[in-house]
């Protein structure tokens, strides 16, 4: 009986070692590569937008198609923190721009996408802050395989996520 048991254990181990482990490893590498391309695409999108001062529908769809080409589905969140020019306008102050006193109000993804669909361009101005974060919404293969062995608690664990942000350096125009 002990011999049979050992054989069964050996076969199970072999299966894990020869099938599941390589699969897990390859799917994790595939996630790494997805991570790489998502990160590159996100950074390129944000840096381009903030150096020309506008988000265009063209750039946005480029971002969407690049990240979707990785075979996963993603959630893109954009945020523009619009610099309120009027906060610095208190007559008692001696400087136009008081350091540390800048105030921003935020515009989020749905508002931006609405304007993009309507006009094709979303304009920002110098001094605004623009950030984008991308997270996968489906379970990737590696997540699914790992899920078999140990459960991932909660749904907020992403394997592919990229974020980039920065100050807008130019005034955009149509």
């Amino acid at each position: 009986m002990s011999d049979t048991l050992i054989t069964i254990i050996a076969i199970l181990l072999a299966a894990v070692l020869m099938f599941i482990f390589p699969l897990l490893s390859v799917s994790e590498r595939s996630d790494d590569i997805s991570q790489l391309s998502v990160e590159t695409a996100t950074t390129k999108f944000v840096d381009n937008a903030r150096s020309v001062g506008k988000i265009t529908m063209q750039n946005y769809t480029d971002l969407v198609s690049t990240i979707n080409a990785t075979g996963n589905s993603y959630d893109i969140e954009m945020e523009i923190q619009v610099l309120d020019e009027n906060i610095g306008k208190k007559s008692a102050w001696t400087e136009g721009t008081v350091i540390g006193e800048n105030t921003y109000y935020s515009i989020y993804t749905s508002q931006i996408v609405d304007v993009l669909e309507d006009k094709g361009v979303y304009v920002m101005k110098e001094g605004d802050r623009f950030s984008t974060s991308v997270k996968n919404t489906n379970k990737t293969l590696s997540q699914a395989i790992r899920g078999v062995f140990y459960s991932i608690s909660g749904s907020d664990v992403y394997t592919i996520a990229a974020q980039h942000a920065g100050i807008v350096t130019a005034n955009g125009s149509y």
Partner: peptide
């Protein structure tokens, strides 16, 4: 002293 318009200057869209 004037205030920047929230449509054309602060936002731009």
């Amino acid at each position: 002293q004037n205030i920047a318009c929230y449509d054309c200057i602060n936002d731009g869209n």
